[in-house]
Write a protein that binds this DNA or RNA. Structure first.
Lengths: 252, 252
DNA sequence: CTCCGGCCTGCCGCGACGTGAGGGTCAAGC
DNA sequence: GCTTGACCCTCACGTCGCGGCAGGCCGGAG
């Protein structure tokens, strides 16, 4: 099986120029040429390109990729394992960022404001960087984003007042439940947890049950959020967290 | 709160040069200067920088970030929502890649070989790109990778023979269980599923219960893998998948 | 008053291609 | 056999997001 640059480019979703570049720096030289000087790639070349693309997507510089691929100690299976581990790591990092965003969202909602140092904690110690083709397509000009934008942008003074009233109302009722000794896994407490979630969904952001339990855990783990609830009523943070968990489980 | 370039750089983990650059292109100009011409950043500048860093990490070009941040329709909460969605998308994509890697691993293990087109299916239609600082630190020179590399690199002819024998042995026993009508959720079938997992762990790669059930689903979803098992014995793919699920649940 | 660390403004360089310019190649259809 | 259009070739300069250095100006500590 022999392929021309164009065919390879199309299959691998890179430009012809990129293949020329890889050839130029000796990272991926086609296994042969036609009499006319056309590049001819074979299956082995394609496999190599696949690996190049993979490491490139994870941000490795070309020079380093050359080293990795030419390592005589690493066979294909080893590459797959390595790639699997790299991906897991990346996912973990992104999940941390998601968690950080959720914290920031809740912080806003509760009007806790983060210190400058806290703002950058998210970025930990590493620094990916991606080519935003997908991002642009998905968010650059979609209706979804416009809608999502409008939702918060258009809060008026009355809206804010309404939100505050609803929250206070909910607050009074859950404190009542807590002081009355209503169990956190009772139908009443669960209903209040669900109301809490609905409140977030209606006014702030889309909060799935999964995200909601994540928030619950955070209320206990993060002293700023714990303090917020404990100031309303001692024991409320834990009570709410428990109710949220119970509610989420019952809906699953 | 006013900060110097150096302080901001340290907090945000960027270089002073980067801040100069952002100033130069007008993306982030400090809110003021000292009489001597020193840049002075305030809290609002920091917040803006945080967002810049975020979108940058997701690969947006600076020009586009400027557009996003200067959009009068998007308030801070909208940005958080957008960022949350972007992250979810990225994670989803990485998870697809993980799945693809797992397929490739299993394909190797079963000696099914993928066509060139299949090799690049992983890359779908987008193309991230990350700066591999983290990757390098984690994998460039760690012991873990060396070990992981060695495992497969050092398979000898006898090893391969041994692997084949073990697999055949296991195959005969599960076919026996299937034809004998042993239920897939019986202790015996589950033990065979566990053995299947152990076989992968011992010789190929680290296969958690989660990954294992993922494989099980794949055996049913992907005709190539289904065929592999169905050729051994009709109904085996489904039988094994069911046993794997039962086994995973019982161990959770 | 003198350091030393931090700040300033240029300005050149680099990695990984993008983007033509200028020209040869090849298969299909007339 | 000849044209046409898609595809290929090799330079070679342009771009983006900074890195890094030169040459010089602050500013507080000793």
């Amino acid at each position: 099986m022999a392929y021309t640059v164009g065919q390879v480019a199309k299959a691998a979703r890179v430009t012809v120029r990129t293949l020329h570049h890889y050839d130029g720096i000796g990272l991926l030289s086609p296994s042969g040429r036609t009499p006319a000087g056309y590049r001819r790639y074979d299956d082995a070349d394609l496999e190599r390109l696949q690996h190049i693309r993979f490491y490139r997507e994870l941000g490795f510089p070309l020079e380093e990729i050359a080293v990795i691929l030419d390592d005589p100690d690493a066979d294909p299976a080893a590459h797959l394992r390595r790639q699997h581990d790299l991906l897991s790591g990346r996912i973990g990092k992104l999940q941390e960022m998601v968690a950080a965003i959720e914290i920031a969202m809740e912080a806003r909602r509760m009007e806790i404001n983060l210190t400058p140092e806290e703002r950058f904690e998210v970025f930990g110690d590493a620094d990916p960087e991606e080519h935003a083709e997908e991002a642009r397509q998905r968010w650059g000009d979609t209706e979804a984003y416009r809608v999502s934008t409008r939702r918060a942008a258009s809060y008026s003074k009355e809206d804010w007042l309404r939100i505050k009233t609803e929250q206070d109302n909910w607050g009074r009722r859950i404190v009542a439940a807590l002081t009355a000794g209503t169990p956190a896994d009772s139908a009443e407490a669960m209903a209040l947890a669900e109301e809490h979630r609905q409140l977030i969904v209606r006014w702030f952001y889309d909060c799935s049950y999964e995200v909601h339990t994540g928030l619950a855990d955070m209320y206990l783990a993060d002293p700023r959020f714990t303090a917020y609830y404990e100031k309303i009523a001692p024991g409320l943070a834990e009570y709410l967290a428990e109710a949220i968990h119970a509610n989420a489980i019952s809906r699953a």
